[in-house]
Design a protein around this nucleic acid. Structure first.
Length: 507
RNA sequence: GGCCCGUUCGUCUAGGGGUUAGGACACCAGAUUUUCAUUCUGGUAACAGGGGUUCGAUUCCCCUACGGGCUACCA
């Protein structure tokens, strides 16, 4: 086997936001390239002018960047094979299509879309639902195979609309090896004469893809399983051009968490999780789809989830740095079957990454959010808050849950008050405990605990008689971090003050 | 409908001719905890079905069922 340099491409079509399945395809391409010291390129396949969506290309670039899997060549990055946007490569394709016509592998066809549509409808009515423009039907249609040469020439000269179709041979076998699925065999009799070159002067995906992969020296084509049925056509085209065929790997699809079918753009907001890396506003409808970034996910956690959706290392490792991913990745270990996406596990991954982040970094991340909430604290205080809240947070924003971290509670949980606070009686206890607190010289949670125990012993009270009240005046609720730790965070003075406010408000 | 791909706990998966079929998420229970969360311990839970091949099949082969993809002058 020749040791060709690994060059892989991610080749999305800018028809909307890039969804997570696309990001996973990009990730696998990226990992494979890095693992083998190869190139990872981004090519934009915008041959369908009708489906072009403004902003989509930029969205793709920004998404890859956010994920940290940037191409080293391609749209937005440049490179020796520029341009990488197919619309800009437009003039390149027609000669290749014509080359195939001349070599007998393709032909001109003049049938209008309406005519073909009618034929399909008639066939369907005749209970022949699978009508194809193929090696049989092409003999009865209007193309350069059936029409007099003069007529064809005349039409071409007159500028009559036409397409160029691939002339799929009859009774042949197409065999090729897919790295994930092994040997695949297709009969050419099942394949139709696909349009290679459209009447609008643009190539179809099939032509542009093959021409570009070949001319850009692509060694491996790693793409979604939805392309598997057209892979034999592509293999035949490489054969027709006399080009070496890249190796294929068709990835299994990512499926909806519930029900059936592949994960679609609409599933996310329907089921309460994002399907897009970044928030996306549809320029047509103005509809907004949520993104992982905006939901507070770490890009590394997002990538980690994607990595394991269809690929497994063979040991029990689940958390991977990018470097570890590159090291461990191999196409052979990609599974064959589709994977249902699991939002719960995605949250779990984010929680893991949150905990692995040093609190000093969390503090930096949280500072602007605290400011936005209208509070002003030192970096040191922010760090203390992060450490205090870490155990019950999944997202960075969870670290700031509770105004009591910054100010005395303005509202008290009604149920909690009803359950724990006895008018009069409770305020007497709290007032005494306030004096206890005032005497603590080094105001740490440990010392507060000791003081509380002494206080309880002295008053012959149980933990339950004081702790919930203390927590209530400090935070306004009965849940959250230990009361003593909250007290330490806010300091003695503030703790005393909150007890006073609580007594005042709760009576 | 046709063609193609697939099928291990609810989910993501490891494994692979002889295993108590392993891990993770989720779930349940217990322990720790003043609460919640964390943490720890334990638990429920899977080889789609039927035929072969074989001493032996979840693992290899075939069929069926089920799931998925494709079936455009879309990608």
């Amino acid at each position: 086997m020749t040791q060709k340099k690994v060059r892989v491409r991610f080749a999305p079509s800018p028809t909307g936001a890039l969804h997570m399945g696309g990001v996973r395809t990009a990730l696998y391409n990226y990992l494979f390239a890095k693992k083998h010291g190869g190139d990872f390129l981004l090519r934009i396949e915008d041959t369908d002018q009708g489906r072009f969506v403004p902003g989509a290309e930029d969205y793709i670039l920004r998404s890859l960047k956010w994920c940290g899997i940037e191409p080293n060549e391609g749209v937005g990055y440049g490179g020796p094979f520029a341009p990488y946007r197919q619309s800009e490569r437009k003039p390149m394709y027609k000669p290749f299509a014509e080359e195939l016509v001349h070599s007998g592998w393709a032909y001109y066809a003049f049938d209008t879309p309406e005519e073909l549509d009618n034929i399909r409808k008639q066939a369907e009515a005749a209970k022949m639902p699978n009508w194809q423009y193929n090696s049989i039907s092409r003999n009865t249609l209007r193309n350069s195979l059936t029409m007099p040469e003069d007529d064809v020439k005349h039409r071409l000269e007159e500028g009559d609309p036409y397409v160029i179709r691939f002339k799929m041979p009859r009774n042949e076998e197409v065999r090729f090896q897919d790295i994930i699925r092994g040997w695949l065999v297709f009969s050419t009799n099942e394949l139709d004469d696909k349009v290679l070159f459209k009447s609008d002067g643009m190539p179809t995906y099939h032509l542009a893809n093959i021409v570009d992969d070949h001319s850009m020296d692509i060694s491996h084509v790693i793409r979604g399983e939805e392309w598997l049925p057209s892979a034999p056509l592509h293999v035949m085209m490489y054969r027709a051009f006399g080009w070496e065929c890249p190796l294929f790997a068709h990835l299994p699809l990512i499926l909806k968490p519930d029900g059936n079918g592949k994960l679609s753009k609409r599933d996310g907001d329907r089921l309460g999780f994002p399907v897009f890396p970044l928030e996306w506003k549809d320029p047509e409808t103005g509809a907004i789809s949520s993104g992982y970034r905006e939901m507070g996910y770490f890009p590394k956690a997002f990538l980690n989830v994607l990595l394991l959706l269809g690929w497994a290392p063979g040991n029990n490792q689940e958390i991977f740095t990018l470097e570890e991913m590159i090291e461990a990745f191999s196409i052979e270990r990609i599974g064959k079957s589709g994977s249902k996406f699991d939002p719960d596990k995605t949250r779990w991954f984010n929680q893991q990454y949150l905990r692995m982040t040093p609190s000093s970094e969390l503090a930096e991340m949280v500072m602007p959010k605290i400011k936005a909430m209208g509070f002003d604290v030192s970096l040191e205080r922010a760090k203390a808050i992060c450490e205090l809240m870490l155990d019950r947070a999944v997202f960075v924003d969870d670290l700031l849950q509770g105004e009591y971290l910054f100010i005395a509670p303005t509202v008290f949980d009604e149920d909690a008050v009803a359950k724990k606070w006895k008018k009069g009686e409770s305020s007497i206890i709290m007032n005494e405990w306030k004096h206890g607190i005032e005497e603590i010289s080094d105001f740490t949670s440990e010392n507060i605990d000791v003081a509380l125990k002494n206080f309880l012993a002295e008053k012959n009270l149980g933990m339950g008689a004081v702790m919930p009240l203390f927590r209530l005046v400090l935070t306004g609720t009965l849940t959250g971090p230990a009361a003593a730790q909250v007290a330490e965070l806010i300091g003695k003075e503030e703790s005393v003050s909150r007890i006073e406010i609580g007594i005042d408000k709760l009576g």
